[in-house]
Amino acid sequence: MPLIRLIDGINEIVGRAVSWVAIIFAGLIIYDVVLRYVFNAPTLWAFDLTKHLYGFYFILLGGYALRHQAHVRVDLVTENLPSMPRRIVEMLGYPLFFFPFAWVFTYHSYLFAQRSWMQGETTYGSIQLPVYPVKIAMAVAAALLLLQGISEFLKLAIGPREESKDVG
């Protein structure tokens, strides 16, 4: 189904791109530690910047994690069920639990990001980094998670789950 491929593709691209952020913030942490303990010259900005990058990393991987079934699941109800009843229970879980949560998360994170953008919100401290990029990322992540939920629901609705193929 083209819609499923489109949503899965978007979350795959975002997930793979965002995974590089981990390397960047690890490099910044190492850089700051070396400056702090070897040269006794800590940076003023590295700690705040790595917190921001970790926020990007953590939040933007939600849709990617759902695509690859990496979210924590409570399978106590479904683990002993045959395939078809399990699929029905999982399908019911999306409209009852996932979609309401994902919609509220998307809507409120959008308002949260909009308010931050309009105020030009920054961090407190010696270096004032803008906060709104992280909050915008949260709104984008919520929308990606909602879209991936739609994709996963459609996969359950149209037939047996195809195993995702890892590329490269």
Rank of each mutant, 00 (worst) to 15 (best):
P85K: 05
Q69N: 12
I59P: 02
L81C: 07
F39A: 15
V89H: 00
G125C: 07
L129T: 09
Y107F: 13
Y57D: 06
Q128N: 03
A142Y: 00
E152K: 15
A65S: 10
A139L: 13
A141E: 08
S116V: 05
F112G: 08
F112W: 13
Q114Y: 13
L144Q: 06
P42L: 11
V140M: 14
K135G: 02
R115G: 07
G125V: 12
M138V: 14
P82H: 09
L66M: 14
Y54M: 12
V134T: 05
Q128F: 00
A113I: 09
G149L: 08
D75Y: 01
I59E: 04
F99D: 04
V38I: 15
Q148F: 06
L96A: 08
N40P: 01
G62E: 00
P95S: 08
A102K: 00
L96M: 09
Q69A: 15
P95W: 06
F112S: 14
Y37M: 07
T43K: 01
P42R: 11
L92M: 11
I136R: 13
L44E: 11
E79K: 14
W117T: 12
L129F: 10
T106W: 11
A41E: 13
A142E: 03
Q148V: 09
L96W: 00
L147C: 15
I127F: 06
G125Q: 08
P85N: 04
H68I: 05
H71T: 05
D48P: 01
I59A: 11
S109T: 15
W103Y: 10
V34R: 10
G62N: 05
E90F: 00
A113L: 08
E79A: 11
E79F: 08
V74H: 09
Y37Q: 10
W117D: 02
L35H: 11
L96R: 03
I59D: 02
P82S: 09
G125E: 09
L147V: 08
V38Q: 13
Y107L: 08
M91W: 01
I150N: 03
S151E: 01
S83C: 06
D48V: 00
H52V: 07
L111H: 14
R73Y: 08
R115M: 09
K51S: 14
K51V: 14
W117V: 09
V77N: 04
A70G: 14
Q119I: 12
F98K: 00
V34Y: 12
L61H: 11
F105C: 02
Y54N: 08
T106R: 00
G55A: 12
L145D: 02
L147Q: 07
A46T: 07
Q69D: 15
G93F: 02
H108D: 15
G149R: 05
T78N: 06
E152R: 14
F97V: 11
W117M: 12
V33Y: 06
L35M: 14
L96I: 10
L49E: 07
G55I: 06
S109L: 03
R36A: 15
V131C: 01
A41L: 07
W117N: 06
V38F: 13
A65R: 02
P100Y: 08
H68F: 13
G62D: 02
T50G: 02
S151L: 10
F47Y: 15
L81V: 07
D32V: 01
L60I: 05
Y37L: 12
M91T: 03
Y110P: 04
V89C: 01
M118S: 13
S126T: 09
A46S: 10
N80L: 07
H52A: 10
R86W: 01
G55M: 12
L66H: 04
